[in-house]
Amino acid sequence: MTQETYVVAHEDAEGHDVLDYAAAQAAKSGAKLHILHVLEWSPYSFLTPQEIEERHARRRAEMERAQEHIIDPAVKRAEAAGVSAEGEIRYGAVVETIVDRAEKIGASMIFVGRAGGNSFSARVFGSVPLGLAQAASIPTVIVP
């Protein structure tokens, strides 16, 4: 049987709870982790001419920062827990992108933290875990 993949929706450098829980589950079942960090981005937002000119450079800087401060430490932490892990950074609508990537790589489960679910904007627009609960096509674990 091929090795299972769990997607970990990794929001920020502080979000260890979900990562540690997913790593523990993966260690038990022999699965590997796919740590996904999504940078909120809409191709339909409006930019000034100056921002358009600088966009490519800024994207590169954002990717580097996310890699260095979020993905690399997370991968290291998972590996320290004895699980094989890879990281990925994507741009897009967060929920949609997580679901889409999980389907593409054939993941069997998604792990997401509950953090942020109580903010005002989350109440109005819905939070990532709630969005995943509705939209995910594979089992999703919401870690408190």
């Binding site: 191709p43 937002s45 001419p49 358009i52 490519h56 994207r59 954002e62 741009y91 897009g92």
Partner: peptide, 15 residues
């Protein structure tokens, strides 16, 4: 989709 995060055609047109 791998180019997401770069300026889209829509954004160029809108600007």
């Amino acid at each position: 989709p791998n180019d997401a995060g770069e300026v889209s055609h829509f954004q160029a047109l809108a600007t």
